[in-house]
Design a protein around this nucleic acid. Structure first.
Length: 567
RNA sequence: GCGCCCGUAGCUCAAUCGGAUAGAGCAUCGGCCUUCUAAGCCGAGGGUUACAGGUUCGAUUCCUGUCGGGUGCGCCA
């Protein structure tokens, strides 16, 4: 609808140019918005205010010129000038309800577009170190990252989901030492306990498993505990495999799947780290100082240069990161999005600087970053800081166990990533009107129940008849519902462009609210078969959009709700 | 000290690349269950959008500064 109106305005602008009332080279940006107040019509445009200067008139006068020049259109009943110069469009019932047929014809494809044109995009998210169970922050990354992927797919992109494992380095060493200490029966309070060792209960389980000779089957390797507490190398491999499996199970419970698991260690094995370093040296962006090798990141906007190779000969973490992102680029991903916690912010400049210094024709802004802020978990009015299993943090599994997958996904994805998030466990687990997840799902279930109820009464929904009789929908709320449905494609587009899945969540809440209001005020199963078919048809369109939207969030669309009493 | 994010109703948050009278939910108060699921609906009160300037037809949104909260600032990852 907005598209049609935009075209109409464009035609009008062209006519006015021909009439000499606008400079021929004027190209004002045409915007058509939904109105917030139905007294302002169905849609509004600010075109007169934007282009008044070009026409040398005040906005209201100019709006009149535009309205007078508007060509006849079958979708328009009238256009009014209001406020400082808005043009308010009132569209016909037929035009408003046309979206219903569109939805029912396109079913699960409705709202999607092909603006990505099948181009490859890679999204890296979660990327937790295999040193413990996933925590809430990883959960937010998983929810936001997965929703971003779903949005990109809905916008026609060819998406690869990737998880980067830091399976090398000091943290893993620390992990191995911690497990070894547990294998030897030591606890965090013992003098011989490794400094900064991992203290969580899962380390005990891990040590027991190793000493029991368990076999760990993870995605790409099997490892059997050697029961030898002195074999640190065996412990290291076993621990990584064990925790990778644990994280995989967490992600599975969250229904987040990855296409590629990329191991940091493979960058060393394949010589890609060394190759990147040699290129940086060759390009003249490095120097030695104090026994270390430095990268001149200041030439690319950093506030100081960074050490690449430490005095002990090892590389700092961002060096394999640079090699990794070069690899992404070489794999043909013209667009890469990294979803990670805001505490990794400092890496952005370094990685981008390193990529530029490689002189590989990588665009300066590559890759894109979506950073999410911290999550605070509340329960019983108090902040929850620890879980038994992990010790120092709340795990993703804790949340899923407490409130379920759907609610966890919703709450972690329903806020702008750049905002700090308070996760209220009591709210998320409440099966009541307080809880937006259930509110949206309930709207979907209610619509499904309409068909069930009709079936019980021996009535059939005649879809074709319903589509023919949409003109019978004369209630204000019906038109508002249709206008809300028509917004869905734009929500997908905007949320996809901005990597803001929370906009989908907000939209669904609004749509559900519109529906509940309509449902309570107007009976759907009425005696008049034509009106009944028309109303059922409208509600089925609502159901379809709710289902499509919930799918974008990775949340189920139940056909009926389990009543609280049944639990 | 420097970088980044944030500051909107008592609380949790929205506000469609700058649009009309800043919206929801919770909480508070008042209505609605012989009627398709009351897990719901309708209504009321509640705001100097932290503060001060600037840009313009118009600012919660953009710019500058101040204050406040968070986070990062290692030859750790």
């Amino acid at each position: 609808m907005k598209q049609e109106l935009s075209q109409l305005i464009q035609q009008t602008i062209d006519l006015l140019k021909e009439a000499g009332k606008l400079p021929a080279d004027a190209a004002p940006k045409i915007m058509v918005d939904n109105t917030k107040d139905k007294a302002h019509g169905d849609y509004a445009s600010n075109i007169a205010m934007v282009s008044a200067k070009l026409a040398g008139m005040n906005p209201r006068q100019w709006a009149e010129e535009i309205v007078n020049a508007l060509p006849q259109s079958p979708i328009l009943t009238k256009a009014e000038i209001a406020g400082p110069g808005f043009i308010n469009f009132f569209v016909t019932e037929a035009a408003s309800f046309a979206v219903v047929e569109d939805i029912l014809n396109n079913t699960d494809q409705f709202g999607r577009n092909n603006s990505g044109q099948g181009q490859k995009v890679q999204v890296e998210f979660v990327s937790a170190n295999p040193t413990g169970p996933l925590h809430v922050g990883h959960g937010r990354g998983a929810a936001v990252g997965d929703c971003i992927c779903r949005l990109l797919e809905a916008n026609g992109w060819d998406v690869t989901r990737e998880f980067y494992y830091n399976d090398a380095g000091a943290q893993i060493n620390n992990l191995a030492l911690s497990v070894q200490a547990r294998c030897k029966g030591l606890g965090p309070d013992d003098a011989a306990w490794p400094e900064d060792g991992y203290r969580g209960d899962y380390i005990v389980d891990l040590a027991n498993s190793f000493m029991a000779g368990d076999t760990i089957e993870s995605a790409d390797q099997n490892f059997t505990g050697t029961k030898d507490a002195d074999d640190l190398e065996a412990i290291r491999h076993f621990a990584v495999a064990y925790l990778r499996r644990e994280q995989d199970l967490d992600l599975k419970a969250f229904e987040v799947d990855f296409d590629v698991y990329f191991l940091e260690s493979s960058l060393y094995e394949d010589g890609k780290v060394e190759a990147a370093v040699q290129t940086l040296i060759k390009n003249g962006y490095t120097y030695e100082d104090g026994g270390a090798l430095w990268l001149k990141t200041t030439e690319f906007g950093d506030d100081k240069d960074r050490v690449m190779r430490k005095k002990d000969g090892g590389y700092t973490y961002f060096v394999p990161d640079v090699a990794y992102h070069l690899d992404k680029w070489q794999r043909g991903f013209g667009r890469v999005i990294n979803e990670q916690g805001a505490d990794h912010h400092s890496t952005i400049t370094r990685v981008r600087a390193g990529l530029q210094a490689l002189k590989a024709d990588i665009p300066a802004g590559f890759p894109d970053y979506v950073l999410h802020q911290m999550v605070t978990v509340m329960k019983g009015g108090e902040e929850v800081k620890i879980s038994k299993r992990a010790g120092s943090y709340v795990t993703l599994r804790d949340l899923i166990d407490e409130v379920g997958r759907d609610a966890t996904r919703y709450f972690l994805a329903a806020r702008a990533p750049s905002s700090q998030l308070t996760f209220d466990i009591d709210l998320a687990r409440s099966q009541s009107n307080d809880n937006p997840v259930y509110y949206i799902q309930y709207a979907h279930a209610r619509i499904c129940s309409i068909l069930r109820k009709m079936n019980e009464q021996g009535l059939q929904w005649d879809k074709a008849n319903g589509l023919n009789k949409l003109e019978l929908l004369s209630e204000d709320q019906e038109k508002l519902l249709a206008n809300a449905l028509a917004r869905f494609p734009e929500v997908i587009k905007v949320a996809g462009e901005n990597n803001t899945p929370h906009q989908v969540a907000n939209y669904l809440y609004e749509l559900a609210s519109e529906f509940h209001g309509y449902y309570n005020n107007h009976k759907t199963i009425v005696d008049d078969a034509d009106l009944r078919d028309a109303r059922v048809t409208l509600t089925q369109a609502v159901r379809q959009v709710l289902a499509n939207g919930l799918d974008l969030l990775g949340i189920s669309a139940p056909e009926e709700m389990i009543s609280p009493e049944a639990e």
